[in-house]
Design a protein around this nucleic acid. Structure first.
Length: 468
DNA sequence: CGATTTTGACCCGCGC
DNA sequence: GCGCGGGTCAAAATCG
């Protein structure tokens, strides 16, 4: 399993030699500042004639230092005229010209990239002018325990307006106002959003891919199927090539027409490892016990496609989940965009790193679905914030151009963002700590899990939630 | 008797 | 066009 994103030669991030922070900002360079005081007024809207020089009175903070001795074509010409035409130096002169031409092209590319970044900066500053959404986002981010099922339920209900869940009317959705629902919904902007008319095709494709994106969970278990809180009906079984163990196909039966499917198969190399692959979004509210796993699949898939677009080699960032979910581990999650559909693999079979408390690892194993679900939920909301800011002005093409760099930015932003760190810490402490509201949440999950899922009695299942 | 599982047949996409 | 493999369907069998 390849989880070493940086060491495998497939790292696709771009390091811009453009300095966006100066020492005058007094901010660490790795901290993404979404909410800075608005003190730098970006000039007119028309930046198409941007020349790369923002070092005027209004942009002292944007110290554009490419680290290169950039040469414009005019400069090249002046250099050319001032150069001696000595025939003995012709070869070296040609070499110099090629180098200058290369630097000139590089200069143009850097200008374009800088222009895009300035556009994004301007949008972020414009976003500050309407502080309410940001406030809501912050409040939502710090809500004790937002229920991640909202994404799954609402998203699918919007997609299928004819569907009326049997849970409707009793749903917890009704307890939230629409603003909270929108804030909690870690979705990419809707297709029919008037602000996104220019990017509907890309959005549509993304949505379709998200529906097809898969999350695979590897876990050691003697049980035939992991307990995830949903009700499943087996509809097929096939012998897969290269594996003596049959692959079983299940579909969700908690609501008629629920498109969620899962495949269960034992690993050919180690038959104690159970590989469960989830696909699709539920079109109905889920019991708390099922939310974690379902939000894991949905959020992971969404994050996979919103925060990190596939690279050309099919491997995106195998460390993204691992480093954000489990900073102490580097081999628990793999993201692959190889055909046919992008897949997030959560490997829960790894032993805890040396030095990690054993009791913590045991609890982590038992509570992983909750931790993963909550963490990915918060995380995807954060990356969703970035995405929504960009897509609000119909700049999906810009995202595409910046996707490679955006991946690195997203990773940095997620891992360094204090909100995410706090949310992750809160999610873990609320589940494991057992104190205060978080403890009651954990107990609720345990109780619901015990009461639901009558046909899955996997006592030795590692996914069974255990009371402390 | 309804719900669920089993299992062979069928469909479809993909590579050659 | 053909074969292969993955995924799904649906009738029969089984279960509670």
């Amino acid at each position: 399993m390849d989880a070493g994103g940086d060491g495998d030669g497939t790292h696709t991030s771009i390091q811009f030699p453009v300095k966006l922070y100066t020492t005058a900002d007094h901010k660490p360079p790795n901290e993404m500042n979404f909410f800075a005081d608005k003190k730098h007024e970006v000039g007119g809207d028309d930046r198409s004639e941007f020349t790369g020089n923002y070092s005027d009175g209004n942009h002292n903070d944007v110290n554009v230092n490419t680290g290169l001795h950039l040469q414009s074509p005019n400069t090249i010409g002046a250099l050319d005229e001032g150069t001696s035409m000595d025939c003995d130096d012709k070869r070296s002169k040609n070499k110099l010209e090629v180098e200058l031409e290369r630097m000139s092209i590089e200069n143009q590319q850097l200008k374009q990239e800088l222009h895009l970044m300035m556009v994004r900066l301007k949008k972020l500053e414009e976003h500050e002018e309407d502080p309410k959404p940001i406030k809501d986002e912050r409040e939502t981010m710090m809500m004790p325990m937002p229920m991640p099922f909202i994404d799954l339920g609402i998203a699918s209900l919007e997609e299928d307006e004819d569907f009326r869940s049997p849970f409707e009317g009793k749903s917890q959705i009704s307890n939230l106002d629409s603003e909270q629902v929108l804030a909690c919904s870690n979705k990419v902007p809707r297709l029919n959003d008037s602000k996104n008319d220019g990017s509907s095709n890309i959005d549509q494709a993304t949505e379709a891919t998200i529906r097809k994106a898969r999350v695979s969970v590897r876990a050691k278990s003697e049980a035939p199927m992991i307990t995830d809180g949903c009700q499943w009906r087996k509809y097929g079984q096939k012998m897969a090539k290269g594996n003596p163990c049959p692959r079983a196909y299940y579909r969700c039966t908690m609501a008629t027409g629920c498109p969620v499917r899962k495949q269960v198969q034992r690993c050919a190399e180690d038959k104690t490892i159970l590989i469960t692959t989830y696909e699709g979004n539920h079109n109905h509210p889920l019991p708390p016990a099922a939310m974690a796993m379902s939000s894991t699949t949905s959020s992971a898939a969404r994050m996979l496609l919103s925060g990190s677009m596939p690279s050309s080699d099919g491997i995106i960032n195998s460390n993204l989940l691992a480093t954000t979910l489990f900073p102490c581990s580097s081999s628990m999650a793999t993201i692959s965009a190889s055909a046919p559909f992008p897949t997030v693999t959560l490997d829960l079979t790894q032993s805890p790193p040396a030095g990690q408390p054993q009791n913590f690892s045991g609890q982590t194993t038992a509570l992983l679905p909750q931790i993963i679900g909550q963490s990915l939920y918060n995380q995807s909301k954060f990356s969703g914030l970035q995405l929504s800011q960009d897509t609000a002005a119909g700049t999906m093409s810009e995202i595409g151009q910046l996707s490679r760099a955006g991946l690195a930015n997203t990773v940095t932003a997620i891992t360094t963002n204090p909100n995410f760190t706090a949310a992750l810490a809160m999610a873990i402490s609320s589940i494991i700590g057992g104190g205060g509201d978080g403890g009651s949440y954990a107990n609720t999950v345990v109780n619901n899990n015990n009461n639901s899922n009558s046909n899955m009695n996997n006592k030795d299942d590692e996914f069974c939630f255990r009371q402390n």
